[in-house]
């Protein structure tokens, strides 16, 4: 008999150092390069192009470059991340509309912010909780990301434009600029 002993923690959750510093925000988007990070989910490209187009019209943003992840369920691979960071001034990433990709979209935003690039991560509003849980395991509790009204995948172009319009005030706020 071992007698009375302490119960063991089964999680292995050591309190990791948190790093919740956002990238510095630009004074304006005029002429800045917009990265559109597509996670390959249906309608992601359409939504990203609508948002980038609106940033160009409203804020005079510069070129918008499309990048495509090779898999939606995990964060962006290191070589693509480096390329995006090298080539872009701000990044929009979408669309986290499933369990694994909502979390991965939030992780992508955190990776970009830590490398100094302001990022807007967009999930569908059914997945706010998994996004928040991912921010926590990534050591960035409270990381702010945006929620488009669910669903996104089944919408047509007009409906995607409506989603974009609804998101724009929040996109501008997260990027720290006025239209």
């Amino acid at each position: 008999m071992a007698g009375r002993e302490k119960l063991l923690d089964p999680t292995g959750f050591d309190d990791r150092a948190t790093d919740s510093t956002l990238a510095p925000r630009p004074a304006s988007l005029r002429g800045l390069t917009i990265g559109m990070l597509d996670n390959t989910k249906p309608n992601a490209v359409l939504l990203l192009q609508e948002i980038a187009g609106e940033l160009q019209r409203r804020c005079g943003a510069g070129e918008a470059i499309l990048y495509t992840k090779d898999y939606f369920g995990t964060p962006v691979k290191e070589d693509l991340l480096k390329q995006v960071v090298d080539e872009c001034d701000v990044v929009i990433t979408a669309v986290g509309d499933c369990g694994s990709c909502s979390a991965a979209t939030v992780a992508d935003g955190i990776l970009l912010e830590r490398l100094g690039v302001p990022a807007v991560s967009i999930v569908s509003d059914s997945f706010l909780v998994s996004g928040a849980a991912m921010a926590k395991v990534q050591g960035f509790p409270g990381f702010e990301f945006l929620a488009a009204r669910h669903p996104v995948a089944s919408l047509d172009e007009d409906e995607i434009r409506d989603r974009m319009q609804a998101l724009m005030p929040e996109v501008l706020r997260v990027l720290g600029v006025e239209s």
């Binding site: 089964p10 292995g12 998994s130 849980a133």
Partner: peptide, 18 residues
């Protein structure tokens, strides 16, 4: 399954979005 929940933090309604 217990380790998935405890070690990987895959709690339902949170990181597990089934």
């Amino acid at each position: 399954r217990l380790a998935a929940i405890n070690v990987f933090g895959l709690h339902p309604h949170q990181l597990d979005q089934a």
